[in-house]
Each structure stands twice: as structure tokens, then as C-alpha cells.
Design a protein around this nucleic acid. Structure first.
Lengths: 335, 335
DNA sequence: CTGTTAGCGCATTCAT
DNA sequence: ATGAATGCGCTAACAG
């Protein structure tokens, strides 16, 4: 592994000059610069990002803390973050918090120990996530997909309440009246906002209401399945359901199948998060699609802004969801 | 950000002693060690991983180069890698090569510049991927899921030929005889091996053969769809199809739907890679399931072995796939 | 415009 | 068993 000194020796200049050529900050005589570049090529020299980081107190690494990479919602988003990050010379370290505040805290500490340039975080909790450990040492943070307590941090969100209103409003328009909801945890902002959207439509359209129409699950498949089973067992008369995320929808569909019900004749279904396979289900699934790739890409841009010195109050970028109407919410037919 | 000197001052010892306590290599007097630990807690000191890396010439970061994080096959695998890595104090930097040898090379260079402890690579090409840039500077490499040219590198693979034989043999057992194949690129070992498995069964069971029964695609959805459309257009008489990966299967199912055919009555389908939603398709999809999480976890273990000094010839770990029989390959009925 | 020099924070000799 | 001193490779003052 050649070092900057090797390059300097071969090019017949000082290490400072090599550094200047490589970083292009100050002007260097063209002939000298050419000699340096030749030496760099000849030795196949690559600057040590470690040494550079130690010196500049800032590494070209971004931390990306999400709840679980196995949730397909996050993968497009991760890809958006990565593409923008790598295009700007940054690498991305991926961390799964498993919705666990302890793990989340450990990863934020890791960001400090690694002197990461910045961190993108999908907070595990709406009010308990604490990013002060990072903002103290001056490591910029942007939250993605979910809100955190600190209004000073930039955030990129989906308009979840609107998405939920689109979904439930659509069900009403299609003739459904007894609409249940499989909600996520309200300790996570997406869970709280989607439930709020559901409730808003229930109220404004004067639908049947009541706690027995709502079940809470943890955004995973298994709990979505049992929540749906409970709904079906408790209320034979529900005619539609809004499920607040992708994995729970998977579980809910299984519960519907377990109960021997037919979609949409016995019960209509709308899920949050579109998936590539949603059109292939029988019947094809109506969903609220989120601009996941852009969500990640925009978040990375806001973070790079901060890394590059932007200061100012916390910014909030809200991206719109879209309703994708398919046959699982076909107009209600009298039975 | 406190440094090791701050800790040393507070504890009234030298920095060398602090370092020794933190790394636990040599024996330190118990009382002194206690003083150090108290100071560490008091200052909330976290060693700089950057400085440590510069000094030891080895960072606690693993590179993970795959083709695309959006392919659900990789996400479970990534999770397996991460869990093992983090449990051993390593972080994971994720890189998408997009099956592009240029990007792959860039990321391997990044591993050098970052002095990464090791790299896990799903090679973009069976014979053109070149890891010598890493093995030169002594950075261990393990390939995952796919083979690379260098027999000296450890590798963890799925028995793809066996998986394909399970799939196609099952179709034969169910009564299908004119079995087509949507194959992946044979420049990637998984593509080549799955096609070989298909051909082995075609030969041994004396099925109809011929180039018109095989179409090549690039492991993505769009090309899988057009490949399947071509097969259906060219041969009205095929009664089953084996599709060599998950995304192409998604495309193939769309093509079948486009053609107005019914599965399995008009055509039976078996795909490679099980997905959580495969049972929810109508009809549920028969697949070859791969132990993806273990694939990643085992790969990380082999890599850590190397990082911890294991030397020896290239090892090969081959994990078994499993056939998950569902209704898309129900016994053939005469028409 | 270029070279000399110092030091980022740590682990590791070499003395003691 | 402990401390003093050194240097990993690089960038940023500063001097020239």
C-alpha cells in the first residue's frame, strides 16, 4: 500500500503538494500537478480514508438506522439513500434497530466512535428517541419516514394521514360502511398518523365507530394476522378493512383466507405500502403507494446539506402518497 | 469528545495504561484498572475507531457488495451478515454493484481505501470478477451466493443445480412433460447452475428438449416477463415452466396473466426463491426456498475466521435448497 | 505557489 | 506492571 509520501517522492514534490493536487482546494502549478497525477497512477495510490478522517475529524461515512432491512418498504428507501450518498463520495453503514431503543442508542454511539459525517434515522419512538448524543458532537441527523421529538432536526416524511384518508375515503366511496382498521403502534408517528387519518374519515363520513373496529399490532406479519383474526371473530358484520402497513397486510390476508372469506365480496381490503406483487394477488390488492426511493434520496440530500455547512431551523419535507385502486376494493355488492 | 489523554489525566495514569485496560491484552493492576474504568464512565469516553484503525491498520468495518438491495433475496442474507458482524463488533458497509463490473471494482477499491477488515462479495461475473486487488493488501474476501474465478477465496453457496432438479423433477412427477425454462444469465454461476439442473432432468427423464423451450433473461422482472411472453408465443404446447429466480418469476406470472392463461390448468409454474407472499398468490406458488439468512450468517462467520488469522485453502460451504410445493404445480389434468 | 512542520487519537515498542 | 516516546497517513498552518 503506497502512501502519500511514496507519491511525493516519485513525483519529486512535498506531501503537501500531493495533498493539494488530490483535494484540488488550492491552485497548484499545472506541470507539478501532472507529475503528481502520473505518480499516483503509476503507484496505483489510493488515499487512506482512515488517515484523512483522523486528520479532518470527519469520515465520509453516513449511518443509516432503520428498524429492519427485511421490511421491503425500507429497501427502496435504502437504495435512494445509497445512490445519493455514493454519488457524493460517501459510504453508507446500515444498522437495524429492530424498533429497540437500546439498539438505536448503541448505533448512535457507533456513529460518534466512527466520527460519521451524518446519520439518517427512522426513529424507534415518537417521543423517546434521543439524538442529542449526536447533535452535541456536531454530527448532523435527519429523520426519515417517522417523526422524532426534536423539532430542530430535519425530517422527510410521507403524508400518512392523507394516505389513510385516501384509503378509507375510497372504501366509503365504493359503498363500504363498516370499516375496520389494523393499526400500527401509536408510539411510532406513522402508526399514529395513519390511525388519525382513518378516524378522520370515520368521523366526517359518519361511519360506525367504536373500539371493536380497531386492533393494534406491531407492524409485523404475525401480529397483523392475529389482529385481523380477532376483528373477524369479534364483528361478523365488518365489510372492509384498512391495514396500516405492508407486513401486517400480508398477515391480514392470511387471516382472511383462514376464515374462508372472499375478497372483496365478504370483505374489502386496502393496505398501506404498495408492493411489486400486489397486482398479482387474487384479487389484486388496492394499496397506498409511497415514493420510497425519493424518500431516501431526499433525506440523503438534506443530510448532505447539513454536512456541507447548512445551518438553520429544522426543515420538514412531506411527500405525497398515492392510492392505487385494484380489485380488492371493488364496489360493494349487496349480499 | 474526550480522548484517551483525558481519561489518562482523570485516572492519574498514562495513556498506555488506559489503552491496555480498554483492550485487555496485558495484565494491569486491578486498582488501576478500576480507576481507569471509572474515568471512562465519568467522561462518557468512546475510543475513536478512526484513530484505532489508523494505528492498527485495520478497521472494524466489513464491505458487503451485492447486486441490488431491492432484490428481496438479498435482504434476508444481508440481515444474516449484519447480525453476525455486529455481534462481533463489526459494522457493515453496503454496496450495490448493479451487476456492473466497473461498480464492483470501485467498491473493492473503496474497501482498500477504508482499510476494511474484510469483504463479502456476490460476484457480478463468474469469470471476470477480480478480487486480486484486495487479496494483495491482505484484505480477506468471501464470496456469497455465486462463484468467482479464484479458488483460493472462501465461498458460501446454495446447491443451485439440486434446487433446479427438485423443481423440474417435481413438475415431471406431477405429470408435466413439455417444460420450459426462463433462465438467468449463464455468466453468473447461479444462472448457469440452475439451467444445468433443468437440463439434467430434461435429459434423464427424456423430456422434450430444444432451444425453443429456453429463454434467457437478466434476473429482473421486465426481462422475465418478455421472456415468458416469447415462450408462450413460440410454443403453444408447453405445459409448465421453471423460472430461475424471484423477480423473473414475478414477470413470468404477469406474462401468463397477460396471455389469459390459468395456472396450473394451462401452465404450471415453479419459481426459484421463496417469498413471504408466495402462498398468497392465487394459486399459491410452488418455489425452491433458499436458506438466505443462514447464507449470510455463515458467510460472515467464514470471513471473521479469516480476519482472525485463519489461513488455509479456499473453503466451500454449500447449503441445501428446499422445494415448497403449492398449488401452482398441482398434478396435471388432461384437457 | 510550495515546502516544512505539527498533530489528529490511538496502540505499541522500549525502558524502567 | 507501568510510563515515555514514537509513528500510523494525512491535512492545514505557517513560512518562505
Amino acid at each position: 500500500m503506497p502512501t502519500i509520501s511514496d507519491v511525493a517522492r516519485v513525483a519529486g514534490v512535498s506531501t503537501a503538494t500531493v495533498s493539494r493536487v488530490l483535494n484540488g482546494n488550492t491552485e497548484v502549478d499545472a506541470a507539478m500537478a501532472a507529475r503528481v497525477r502520473t505518480a499516483v497512477d503509476q503507484l496505483a495510490y489510493r488515499p487512506s480514508r482512515i488517515a484523512r478522517s483522523l486528520r479532518t475529524r470527519r469520515s465520509a461515512v453516513l449511518g443509516l438506522v432503520i428498524s429492519d432491512i427485511r421490511n421491503p418498504f425500507f429497501t427502496d428507501m435504502v437504495r435512494g439513500v445509497e445512490d445519493v450518498a455514493f454519488a457524493n463520495g460517501y459510504s453508507v453503514v446500515l444498522c437495524n434497530s429492530d424498533e429497540n431503543l437500546g439498539k438505536e442508542r448503541d448505533y448512535l454511539q457507533l456513529a460518534i466512535a466512527e466520527s460519521m459525517a451524518g446519520v439518517i434515522l427512522a426513529p424507534a419512538s415518537l417521543d423517546e428517541t434521543d439524538v442529542s448524543a449526536l447533535t452535541g458532537p456536531g454530527i448532523p441527523v435527519v429523520t426519515v419516514d417517522r417523526r422524532a421529538p426534536d423539532p430542530a432536526v430535519d425530517r422527510v416524511l410521507i403524508d400518512n394521514a392523507r394516505g389513510a384518508r385516501l384509503a378509507v375515503g375510497h372504501l366509503v366511496d365504493q359503498g363500504y360502511r363498516r370499516i375496520a382498521c389494523v393499526s400500527g403502534p401509536t408510539t411510532i408517528s406513522t402508526g399514529a398518523e395513519r390511525l388519525a387519518g382513518y378516524r378522520a374519515v370515520v368521523r366526517s363520513r359518519r361511519l360506525r365507530t367504536g373500539a371493536e373496529l380497531i386492533r393494534f399490532a406491531d407492524f409485523h406479519e404475525a401480529s397483523g394476522r392475529s389482529a385481523m383474526s380477532e376483528l373477524l371473530a369479534a364483528r361478523q358484520d365488518i365489510d372492509a378493512v384498512f391495514v396500516a402497513n405492508n407486513l401486517m397486510t400480508l398477515g391480514a390476508l392470511q387471516a382472511v383466507a383462514d376464515a374462508g372469506l372472499v375478497i372483496p365480496d365478504d370483505i374489502a381490503v386496502v393496505g398501506f405500502d404498495d408492493m411489486s406483487w400486489a397486482p398479482l394477488l387474487r384479487p389484486p390488492l388496492t394499496t397506498v403507494a409511497q415514493p420510497t426511493y425519493d424518500l431516501g434520496a431526499e433525506t440523503a440530500r438534506l443530510l448532505l446539506d447539513r454536512i456541507n455547512g447548512f445551518t438553520g431551523p429544522g426543515r420538514e419535507l412531506v411527500l405525497p402518497p398515492t392510492l392505487r385502486v385494484r380489485a380488492s376494493s371493488a364496489p360493494r355488492r349487496e349480499r
